[in-house]
Nucleic acid binder design. Structure first.
Length: 228
DNA sequence: TCAGACTTTTTCGTTACGTCA
DNA sequence: CGTGACGTAACGAAAAAGTCT
């Protein structure tokens, strides 16, 4: 069973097979860029089945209309209990099939349309939170790399200065600790340090970046998964 | 089997209401 | 009491995928 949890959000999107959304629901989710964090099991489903489910619905969308006689919106604040039940349900399955929607609506004394809207808004909030988490992660990555770059530039400058002042000392000094290994691919650590002294000290600086393996990007949600 | 019309459900952006400082 | 900020219920449009013919 696929599961994706985000502790930051207090969400666990684990799904039970009996309550999992139907295939076309899943497909809908997967078409968006956010499909990555809404992985769900694929269950066979036919529209005829869903149509049968609709038979359970207490009423039509006509009675779902939330507008007053004057056309104004009748906004109803959900009670804490109602919200809690909806949250629990959302944790179990972030999308609802008609049967689940109708059952939930009946349980909570709400219109199916209200339950539907609540889930839509809840998904939107989840996505927004995740976007913020992603953004924060990328920001930290950027800051780290900027700092690393600044440090390496400074080191290169110092080494160049040293090379000019005392070439003999420079040739016999041990390589800078920060350049003994590429943090991304650990490539340099396997190289002969004497080779590096004879040749380029920093592979990237010598145009070796093309053969340097790029670090595998770790997405924030993967991290949150790993940490949860 | 394929194509196009139709249906269903979703996301996205927005609006409006309720609450609180 | 009035007001602005914020959270969220509700809505409509557009998109995408499924179903039907």
């Amino acid at each position: 069973m696929m599961e994706r949890a985000s502790d930051d959000l207090g969400l666990s999107l684990s799904l039970s097979s009996s309550l999992a959304p139907r295939t076309h629901h899943v497909a809908m989710l997967f078409r968006s860029p956010e499909k990555r964090f809404l992985e769900m099991p694929l269950l066979p489903a036919k529209r005829s089945e869903i149509a049968a489910d609709e038979g359970l619905r207490g009423g039509s969308d006509e009675e779902d209309g939330g507008c007053g006689i004057d056309g104004s919106r009748k906004k109803l604040r959900l009670s804490k209990d109602q919200s809690a039940v909806l949250e629990d349900s959302f944790r179990e399955h972030p999308t609802l099939n008609p049967r689940q929607k109708a059952a939930l609506a009946q349980q909570l004394g709400l219109r199916p349309r209200q339950v539907e809207v609540w889930f839509q808004n809840r998904r939107a909030r989840t996505k927004l939170k995740q976007t913020e988490v992603d953004c924060e992660f990328l920001k930290r990555c950027c800051e780290t790399l900027t700092e690393e770059n600044r440090r390496l530039q400074k080191e290169v400058q110092e080494l160049r200065a040293l090379k000019l002042v005392s070439p003999h000392l420079y040739m016999h000094m041990s390589p800078p600790t920060t350049l003994t290994m590429c943090p991304s691919c650990e490539r340099v650590s396997n190289a002969n340090s004497a080779d590096r002294r004879a040749g380029s000290i920093a592979p990237a600086a010598a145009g070796d970046a093309a053969v340097c393996h790029r670090p595998i990007a770790v997405r924030p949600q993967q991290q949150s998964l790993a940490s949860s």
